[in-house]
Design a protein around this nucleic acid. Structure first.
Length: 688
DNA sequence: CTAGGGTTAG
């Protein structure tokens, strides 16, 4: 710094050399001091001012750049294009176009050159301003500027982002002298439009026409690997990049992690991520996304903590990924924490973060908080609406879901495939049979949305809920859809709830014909027999399951208390406080027996599985977790428990009564829906 | 002195 003052006062050539270095280094503080020196010595000319515009723009101080520009007594084309580039790179493409309009080229100013058009066309791309872009196209054709390679490529990019693939292809085909940048743009454009085979064809052409691929070509190829879920190809490309030393590039590194994640190999994603020498937010976010997509939710949370410890600031993408991991885990307290964190950094206003928060809160049993977030959004898109509608529906709040749906229609937002899953689910909760059929048969059809198996399954649920089980069965057998095991289970469990055992057994036989080893169906069947006290049949089914080595997925429930997640499996005694928990359960069972609870047992049989024996039900995982929660949470705090299977009958009754005798709010998220127990009743109205 | 293509999301 001391030397700099001397240099400026000594020679103007040296000051230009200094300015060049400062521009390359993007040093705001040095730029400011040399600016001050120039003012003091009153020595600056057009070139020095242009440098200052460039430096301020590159350092994100666009208003300072504008000030320098405005105070210049004389300007040239470089002054204009530097300022335009500044506006463009700082995210103000519309300023570039208005600057162009008021510039008065050809009159007071000389004609625009290739530098000006490069930035103007790039701004058209960002603004999706096809018409302006076409006007530029005409000008660069007439003026001959089209022969500059920069102009050619930026024009191609404009058509790729603003117009049809056909227009872009026409520009691409008519362009002489294609270079690596034109090819890269075209490949990426094709991939963006989902035209994978065309992209692949172009890549084979690139092998012949481009001597050396660069890192951006590899990013495109890795995008192709990810889109086509081709693990082998991903490995091959990864190897090539590391051989050529390109994997050190952070764009390439992130693309490698993403490709492995999309190809369902989270181990490869993790080990390649660990092997990279440098990291940034994007590569961190990519690895977290890879883990979340492959159901390693805890890993995502651990990585997030590690990233923060590394001093890397999250972005809206990061929050979206981590929040969706929280949603999957129903990790409400982590989600709360992330909400506060995002709020502090100002990311709460972002659409993706907002939707992720709505999703997280509604999947963690706190719809009230989800609604608060939703109402606080200044900008809503279709995904925010869908998250809120589905959030309400999944929590059994059909009325509220429909209110949001109608508000969405009034605001002129067009519903989508996902919207109607929530809407039909809401109809099912409310018993609105006619409305449900109206939505699926007319409303969706008028919008050109073809109903999928999710919608049809909602209709089955709707009919079942209304007690129209035969109609539900007929609907399933006569409607052409990709009926899956989920849809059949909807009908089966309805048969159980409504005690339609004849139909239930017939359906179960049919399902076992389609899915011979489905444990859930065997269990439903045996539950139906158990409800009729036909224990001989129960024993037979259990024996059959043993012979076929079909195992029931063990019931697991978990609850978060402070910073720790406590996991309970049915009948296991792993928890350090298990003695106290059993004692507490026994006390509570005695209490609720006094108000009418009658436990179900089949103690008179020895050949029945453990779970039917006396007292065994008391060791069901959800009871263990709920009672542990009652013991360890402050007395006003609601108890949030998550279970991997559907809740069992007995636990449902017992927990309802627990909520009454303890005056606590208890929320259990099972694999299907939420049960919100309060004052002895459940939000599911005993139907699940 | 100024300009081009690229990674992560609900």
């Amino acid at each position: 710094m001391e030397n700099m003052k001397l240099l400026i006062s000594v020679s103007p050539q040296t000051s230009l050399r200094l300015l060049k270095i400062i521009s390359q280094k993007r040093s705001l503080s040095l730029g400011k001091s040399i600016h001050a020196q120039l003012i003091i010595s009153n020595l600056f000319n057009i070139i020095e001012s242009n440098y200052l515009i460039d430096i301020y723009s590159k350092c994100g101080h666009i208003s300072a750049a504008r000030q320098v520009f405005d105070f210049m007594p004389n300007r040239n084309l470089v002054s204009v294009s530097s300022l335009m580039a500044g506006y463009f790179h700082n995210g103000y493409p519309s300023e570039v176009l208005s600057a162009y309009r008021i510039m008065g080229f050809g009159q007071s100013c000389s004609c625009p050159n290739e530098f000006i058009f490069a930035t103007v066309l790039a701004s058209c791309s960002d603004l999706q301003a096809l018409e302006e872009g076409q006007q530029c196209h005409a000008y660069v054709l007439k003026s001959g500027l089209i022969f500059h390679s920069y102009i050619k490529n930026v024009l191609l990019h404009m058509y790729l982002t603003c117009s049809s693939m056909e227009d872009a292809l026409q520009v691409f085909r008519s362009m002489p002298g294609l270079d690596i940048i034109s090819f890269n743009s075209m490949v990426n454009g094709l991939l963006d439009h989902g035209r994978m085979s065309d992209a692949l064809y172009l890549l084979t052409r690139m092998v012949a026409e481009i001597s050396q691929w660069d890192h951006i070509t590899y990013v495109a190829v890795l995008g192709l690997c990810a889109d086509s879920r081709d693990l082998l190809l991903s490995r091959q490309v990864h190897c090539q990049t590391s051989k050529r030393g390109i994997e050190a590039n952070l764009f390439v590194a992130s693309a490698i992690v993403d490709a492995y994640g999309k190809c369902a190999d989270s181990n490869a994603a993790l080990s390649s991520f660990r092997g990279f020498s440098s990291r940034n937010v994007v590569s961190w976010t990519s690895i977290m996304s890879a883990c979340t997509q492959n159901l390693s939710f805890e890993e995502t949370l651990k990585l997030f903590v590690e990233m923060l410890a590394d001093g890397v600031q999250p972005t809206e993408f990061t929050y979206a990924v981590v929040l969706s991991a929280c949603a999957a885990l129903a990790a409400l307290s982590n989600g709360h924490l992330l909400n506060a964190h995002a709020l502090k950094l100002g990311y709460n206003a972002h659409l993706t973060v907002g939707s992720a928060l709505i999703n997280m809160y509604s999947k963690s049993g706190s719809v009230e908080d989800a609604l608060k977030i939703f109402m606080g959004l200044t900008w809503k898109d279709i995904i925010s609406w869908n998250c809120m509608i589905n959030g309400f529906s999944h929590n059994g709040l059909g009325r509220e879901a429909l209110v949001i749906f109608h508000r969405m229609l009034t605001e002129g937002v067009a519903p989508t495939y996902v919207t109607f899953i929530g809407v039909l689910l809401a109809c099912s909760h409310l018993g609105l049979v006619d409305e449900g059929f109206y939505y699926i048969n007319h409303f969706m059809r008028n919008l050109g949305i073809v109903p999928g198996v999710e919608h049809h399954t909602c209709i089955v649920g709707l009919l079942c809920r209304a007690g129209l089980l035969n109609q539900a069965n007929v609907y399933m057998t006569t409607t052409d859809s990709n009926w899956d095991i989920v849809s059949w289970r909807t009908l089966l469990s309805a048969c159980l709830v409504h005690r339609k055992f004849l139909l239930g057994r017939r359906v179960a036989d049919y399902v076992l014909h389609l899915h011979p080893d489905d444990a859930g169906t065997y269990i439903s069947l045996s539950n139906m027999y158990a409800k009729e006290n036909r224990w001989d049949k129960v024993v037979k089914i259990r024996r059959l399951m043993r012979e076929k080595c079909i195992k029931k997925e063990p019931g697991v429930s978990w609850i978060q208390v402070r910073d720790k997640v406590h996991v309970f499996a049915s009948g296991d005694n792993q928890h350090p406080l298990i003695e106290n928990i059993h004692k507490k359960i026994a006390e509570l069972i005695d209490e609720i027996k006094a108000i009418g609870y009658a436990p179900k047992t089949a103690s008179f049989l020895h050949d029945v599985e453990e779970e039917y024996k006396e007292g065994y039900l008391n060791y069901h995982s959800e009871k263990l977790a709920v009672v542990f929660g009652l013991m360890s949470m402050p007395s006003e705090a609601p108890i949030h428990v998550i279970k991997n299977l559907r809740m069992c009958d007995d636990c449902h009754i017992a927990i309802k009564l627990f909520s009454k005798v303890t005056k606590r709010k208890i929320v259990v998220r099972d694999v299907n829906r939420f049960h919100c127990f309060e004052g002895g009743v459940c939000s599911c109205d005993d139907y699940w």
